[in-house]
Write a protein that binds this DNA or RNA. Structure first.
Lengths: 213, 213, 213, 213
DNA sequence: GATGAATGAGCATTCATTCAT
DNA sequence: CATGAATGAATGCTCATTCAT
């Protein structure tokens, strides 16, 4: 006796055939487009299905519901973001490492701003999204924090600053800048390379001249 | 002949009597509560009306729809935020001025985090909200930019940094930190006074020790 | 013990003062305007009150509801129509009498087409209106029928035609022509005097040449 | 890849399957019934759906709204009316042709008086309905006018009468008679065949004896 | 008399989801 | 696998009418 799964039920079993995989992928693509065009909240399952070339009901063979596609997209996005932005960090030149990572991240954000917008929007109403986003953020924060910690030992970083806080603030600055820039288009469009450098400079050295003495 | 105005509908006329003003205010209060509890998108007009102790229809005497109350709340929030955080800036001690303003802002944000959450959520789907938020942000950015500009002349600020960008980044850092802290509770809860100082220090002096020359 | 009437209740007692009469009249005028602009069904009591320069509630001092004003207007309209169109009928020149009456009626219809439109619209949903309209129509039909009857005795009218039917058809023709012309504007605008003559000619003598014999 | 169309909403797509066609039709039938029983304005979409044996939402798969079903019914009604009443016209016996057409029209009106009532009611508030009705009317008027014109050439019709006006008046008389008779029941119920003959006689030959000499 | 605040019933419409074919 | 028909819950909004002041 084989276990029988209810037809089209909320189980959304993974597709078994190659054709099935292609179908699932085309739904993901269509969903991304629909979210971009209408926003996550307003996009309708029927829009997605239609755009993917399927009937209404077919959607449910591949995803339990709209949330499921969104999660699938957003999870990949965050995983890719972390992988893409990752760069080996030079112990003795932490600032330079940050420039590189930041630039990569901004590029990635720019290229995927539609999904980042979904991420931001969905995180408002969807605790699961907020959580995986928090996890991803934390991963980055911890990485930066470790770097700062090492820099402190090397006496490259100031000793009077809270490590966690410093890391958090770098992430805040970068993430919110990316949001204002690539999603809202509310800040001047500096060259990304330059923006990355600015962020790093501000964070690492500050906007002000150091009082000598 | 006294000019008389038609009944409710989408007009949302101002109340004529003191009783009306009180009613309008209690609807605002109820809306704020409802948005906090259910989120802006999910809150129902009927919840608001009921919570305010009114029938469904009474709501529409004072606000055209849910969006209208929300806008009313959010506009006040931003106006208050700017007013509240405002502090005279000392020409020669710009950093100290920023600490004060930042601390005030964080305190204000903390006290009104429920409304800030509404602001963030609504700005995702409501262009009007996004816009007034952008305007408010810009006001602050410009204020910071002017200060940086002066500091450059006094040679307190580094000359090799873009004024606008520096200002934007301070705002990004502060705003996103406040969001992570008071709305998402995703960062450690430092004392607000300390957090303000951290933000200012990072932004003004950087996380790293200046290589001496 | 004096009978006490509930305040502003559905009784709509007649106004006692001159000022009251003026107020009532201005509401009637405003109602007519509102019905013309929005149609009877869509016109709102608040529109009427506002237009008349009163508050919402004041309306109910003068009329029980929207239907009551409408009935008041429509009753007057029909009474006026009959009175206005009335003309002494010459025994021996019935056709000429009809021309005169028809012309008067068309002129009256033209001058009051807004109210006739209300009459038509309201009669669809309001049995009372339909009924008083029917009564008015019947009055006219009977008058015409009496004339036809006399004409038959004088052998001016054909004997092979049903008196009632002939009368009804004259009224049908006139009324519907007026409707198409003054309300719908769907027929060419002949001079009213000419139109009255046409109607009478067709009805009295027919469109065709009589086969002689 | 099969083209797939999105779900319902205000699109009212045609049914794809036979089952769908049947459903659509039963909704039309139910709508007609509902309009008859409650009037167009008062009939509720939910009444229609329920009467058709469907859930509320099913209605919207086939019609955008109440107006759409109504239009669908009314358009068919007018098309059918014109087709049904059409009869070949004998050049030399125009009156006889009119009798036949009129009788057919009255029979059709009688059999569909419920829909004609909807037509009349809806035309009061719905410009689209008024327009298609006007078009249908005009078609008939033009047909009659052509006939009158020919009759004038044959000197069967009087030369001193306006062709358009004569045609319009025949239509006015017939249409309004049908309305008073089959919808309002306000005129005596002559046999339809007789009524058609009366209308034609009055219109063609007049109610009066022709003054000889 | 007059005001305007408050009531509350009433209905259309959307859309995620299921299921018969 | 795929279709598309059907479900049905959920809620915003209007406006005639009442009534406290």
């Amino acid at each position: 006796m084989v276990a029988v799964v209810a037809q089209g039920s909320a189980s959304a079993e993974p597709p078994r055939t190659r054709r099935g995989s292609r179908s699932r992928e085309s739904i993901r693509v269509a969903a991304r487009r629909a979210f971009r065009d209408a926003g996550y909240a307003s996009a309708r399952v029927s829009d997605i299905a239609e755009d993917a070339g399927f009937s209404n009901g077919a959607f449910y063979r591949y995803f339990a519901d709209k949330e499921a596609v969104m999660l699938s997209l957003v999870e990949d996005l965050l995983a890719d973001a972390i992988e893409f932005a990752h760069a080996p960090w030079e112990e003795d030149q932490p600032a330079e490492s940050i420039v590189v990572t930041t630039e990569r991240y901004l590029n990635f954000y720019s290229a995927n701003s539609d999904l980042f917008q979904v991420l931001v929007e969905a995180s408002q109403s969807n605790a699961r999204v907020e959580e995986i986003w928090a996890k991803a953020r934390d991963q980055v924060v911890q990485r930066v924090a470790r770097m700062v910690s090492r820099a402190k030992h090397l006496e490259i970083a100031r000793g009077d600053i809270d490590t966690q806080m410093a890391a958090v603030l770098l992430v805040c600055m970068t993430d919110h800048y990316a949001y204002l820039r690539f999603i809202l288009n509310r800040v001047p469009a500096r060259p990304i390379e330059q923006a990355a450098r600015d962020i790093t400079t501000i964070w690492a050295n500050g906007a002000f001249v150091v009082a000598e003495g």
